[in-house]
Design a protein around this nucleic acid. Structure first.
Lengths: 152, 152
DNA sequence: GCCCCTAATGAAAGTCTATTTCATTTCATT
DNA sequence: AATGAAATGAAATAGACTTTCATTAGGGGC
């Protein structure tokens, strides 16, 4: 399956679902029953969730966790799914608008993550404090391919 | 081993090593030969490194990776070590000034991480671009204990 | 210097998220 | 319906990190 390059398509009034389906077709992907259920699960979530939570929400047997992972990977490559890193090295997953990405306020204990609409560190922390969060920590890391690696 | 509360001690001219040792003693910890080697490794690093890299630098046999992890955990609890999350869910580690923390510019390929002195997202990205990084992505997440969890 | 308590270590097994392999099934296009 | 590639299922694997438990060794008190 080839994955389409990330184009900032003109934002029409079509829903996220339509965009996903369109991108899927464009890239040679198919809409299967399982994939529909995973998508459905992602759509009903109001916050990022773990692969395991998504499996349950899609009403898949435990053995189908691998299908969830594979679908998440697909949506990620389509530029419509974001991986939210937790402090323990695991991830939550969430559908996004095309090629968008979000930041979150994440409970260190229950891992509930809620989306934030600001993107500046001290504002984020103020926001967290004002919402009653304690023991606040944050990560902000920039990833990229360095010039040296880009040559190879 | 009890861990001392994070106090912002008045910044004297004492070196980082002295501070680590002092905090260690205060919290009931000991300075062992192995710990000295791990600390030594951390001190000679000019950038965050993986536990495995630290093991090599400390000239430990492979079986002592667990000792590295345990020491990293100790230093982290002392408020003098930061875990830098990578995109793949693993971490790099780096000594920090007491209760400080840093952000980094990390190569998505070789995982080389260099410290940044700015803390605002768009500035970070501009900096990354100006340094020739490509395929730039970043994470900025805020972690904390939510009010609900704090009650339990 | 010697005791003694407790922290730290060593070895090995265990956890857990996530990925890979490969045979089989299923989609969607012709 | 036939066909070729994509998706799935089952099971094994990867890999970072943790835990258990017996043993060793700091370092304060004497």
């Amino acid at each position: 399956m080839k994955i389409a390059p990330k184009t900032s398509a003109p934002e029409t009034s079509s829903k996220l679902l339509d965009i996903v389906i369109e991108r899927l077709k464009t890239s040679g992907g198919r809409m299967t029953k399982k994939r529909e259920r995973v998508l459905g699960a992602l759509f009903t979530m109001d916050r990022p969730a773990s692969a395991e939570e998504i499996r349950k929400r899609a009403e898949f047997p435990e053995s189908d966790l691998v299908t969830v992972y594979r679908n998440l990977e697909t949506f990620e490559k389509l530029g419509m799914l974001q991986r939210v890193p937790l402090e323990n090295g695991t991830h939550l997953f969430e559908l996004t608008a095309p090629d968008e990405h979000y930041h979150h306020l994440i409970c260190r204990e229950c891992h509930k993550a809620e989306r934030l609409d600001i993107c500046v560190t001290h504002e984020l922390i103020d926001k967290a404090k004002s919402q009653g969060y304690s023991q606040i920590a944050h990560v902000m890391e920039v990833y990229g391919i360095c010039e040296e690696c880009a040559k190879h």
